[in-house]
Write a protein that binds this DNA or RNA. Structure first.
Lengths: 218, 218
DNA sequence: ATTAATTTTTAGGTTTGTCTAAAAATTTGA
DNA sequence: TCAAATTTTTAGACAAACCTAAAAATTAAT
């Protein structure tokens, strides 16, 4: 049995490991993302290691074992499927779903997950463009680039975001930047690397470099 | 903030109070239904009384306060709405949904509940025929009778069950007794009060009194 | 290469919700 | 009515997941 809390730790370790390019995740990093103190994290890491969910040597940070990774991927699968449900079926905005999916991701029923997946049409990506692992934990392949790294005059398609805060997503909404829209880069400021882009071949929009860094394109 | 556990106690107190015709619920009764020991229940009752969710005088059993009832009804509302979702949208059988709904009923988001309600077409009854309270906690009016109390030659409509165990529901499935079917009582055995009924004006089926007592009709 | 700063772990406590065993209150029944 | 049986509560413990404070290990810096 894995508790709600253990599942959260494993999910966060998975995500931070990805971000670190496969490197160990540190105690302090985990403390930040779990909203707890380093001492509490230390405690939990000992427990997760005992259960063989993580590889843990004191002071050396952690990585997931195969088993831990399986649990993490199952939680991420559920999170992202529920996000699709909330947006596609219930009409939530992509900026409103994170906290609800954080709860739904812990509902424990394989049959439910698979029926939900089917009901949603076996989606491969969630409303933020994040890939949804399949029942075996296999992630769809994705290679994306930050919009901030695209050269002038190029045309690309918006396929994801690397920040999920409501404020950021609402900012994109306000500028009509949505998943699937086409973006042609018209100008990049010498001074602050801000972008002037043409959206869907129709309207011209200004975008700070800070935003462009968190918009993923193909 | 009400915890998962507190919500469960309040829900169970609500249901047992109904069953008792509005009378106080005893500690032992609660211990049975919460799968814990009387000592643990005593403890929890003290806490729930402190929070003003229940009326509690030592040794006298408990009833819900207005506030406790509100929480109980919100949990029951969510439980029954999710059951509709599981059956109507995901294709679960009515015998498979209880445990999943027990988890989903604790998801905390008013917007989610209201959007789900709308998505489902504001159902008034769940897949077992139980009434779904509205957002304000108001229950649809229902007056049902046990099939076991109906006289011979009468024709009635099946509208609910008073037992939700998978075994009982599967037994009804096997005999094609579903919500909404018409039942004409053809014979009642003198010996064991078992029933011979005509289902939907087409097939004749045998039913023990034990089953008839738990089938609700109108 | 030590000292200083930082990170991580340990030690000792708290809260929630459970337990067992024993005490107290209530109910039953002879 | 008063002793026996039953129900309920109290007392004292425990596990999970957190905390603060202090100790230990690691990393950085002069």
């Amino acid at each position: 049995m894995t508790s709600f809390t253990e599942e959260n730790y494993l999910k966060i370790i998975y995500m931070l490991t990805e971000q670190n390019g496969g490197n160990e995740v540190s105690t302090n990093e985990l403390a930040e993302h779990t909203q707890t103190k380093a001492a509490s994290v230390s405690d939990m890491l000992r427990k997760l290691a005992e259960k063989n969910f993580i590889n843990y040597k004191k002071y050396q940070g952690v990585t997931l074992t195969k088993e831990g990774q399986g649990i993490a991927l199952s939680v991420i699968r559920k999170h992202r499927l529920w996000e699709v449900f909330l947006v596609e079926k219930l009409g939530f905005g992509w900026d409103e779903i994170h906290d609800i999916a954080e709860q739904l991701e812990h509902i424990d029923s394989k049959e439910l997950t698979e029926k939900l997946d089917k009901f949603l049409g076996n989606p491969k990506f969630d409303p933020h463009g994040d890939p949804i692992p399949d029942a075996k934990g296999k992630m769809p392949l994705v290679s994306t680039t930050k919009l901030s790294e695209i050269a002038i005059d190029q045309t690309v398609v918006m396929v994801g975001v690397s920040v999920h805060s409501p404020a950021f997503l609402q900012h994109l909404d306000k500028n009509q930047i949505t998943l699937g829209c086409t973006i042609k880069i018209q100008e990049i400021s010498e001074f602050d690397k801000s972008f002037t882009i043409l959206l869907n071949d129709t309207n011209t929009v200004f975008m700070s470099n800070e935003v462009a860094k968190n918009v993923l394109v193909q």
